Amino acid sequence: MSSTAVILTLIAVLVVIAFWIFSVYNSLVALRQRVEQSFADIDVQLKQRRDLVPNLVETVKGYASHERGTLEEVVKARNAAMSAQGPAQTAAAEGQLTATLRSLFALSEAYPDLKANTNFQQLQNDLADIENKLAAARRFFNNAVQEYNTGIARIPALWFAASFGFTRKDFYDLGEQRVQLEEAPSVKF
């Protein structure tokens, strides 16, 4: 074999390897984008939920003004949820907001006029709808994270994923509040 043929063969092999690396890199980029997009979907649902809280607090305040402590806890939890960053911190803050909202809804049992208020009922329905959408968005996010983590752990990506900045992502873990949040909020009239 001539030296020219060896050089051309070597160049062809290097080109094939380069295209293969580009292909693996691009698939990892697509997986990472899917994770980021799916977390953004969760964030949209959480923002909608947080936007309901002031209306809910104002509605309850009109009927149960002496329940100031509960109302302040809801507002405090909402503010903490709004400043949370990343899946782990967001999950913890949103879990606390969910707990305070449950205590707020428990007040409606003590105030029949509040329970019968159409605005309050609509806010409860909206919140239940958002909770269902959030559950679906969390499942989609965790699926995207699982695919991404599997993608960077598979050979051949495993060999160079870390050097390209692809690191393991965390799941959206609800922690101790998983049992409470997996139940759809009950809307009683």
Rank of each mutant, 00 (worst) to 15 (best):
L127W: 00
V13M: 10
D113C: 06
R78A: 01
T167M: 10
P156D: 07
K115N: 10
Q122E: 08
K169A: 13
D170C: 02
A128I: 02
A12W: 10
V13T: 10
S65W: 11
F160A: 01
S186L: 11
R138I: 06
I155H: 15
A88M: 10
L181N: 11
L104S: 01
V75M: 15
A18R: 03
V29Q: 08
K133T: 03
N119W: 05
N117C: 05
N79L: 08
A77N: 02
L28N: 13
D43I: 10
N119Y: 05
A18Y: 10
Y63S: 00
Y111H: 07
L181R: 15
L56Q: 10
S163K: 14
I152V: 13
P87D: 12
L52V: 06
Y148A: 02
E58T: 12
V29C: 07
A161N: 08
D113E: 15
T9N: 07
N26P: 11
V16A: 12
R102N: 11
L104Y: 01
T90Y: 05
A77E: 02
V74M: 07
S2D: 15
A135N: 12
R178I: 08
S38D: 05
T98Q: 11
F171L: 13
L181P: 01
V13I: 15
K47F: 03
Q122G: 03
E131V: 04
G95D: 06
F171S: 08
R178E: 13
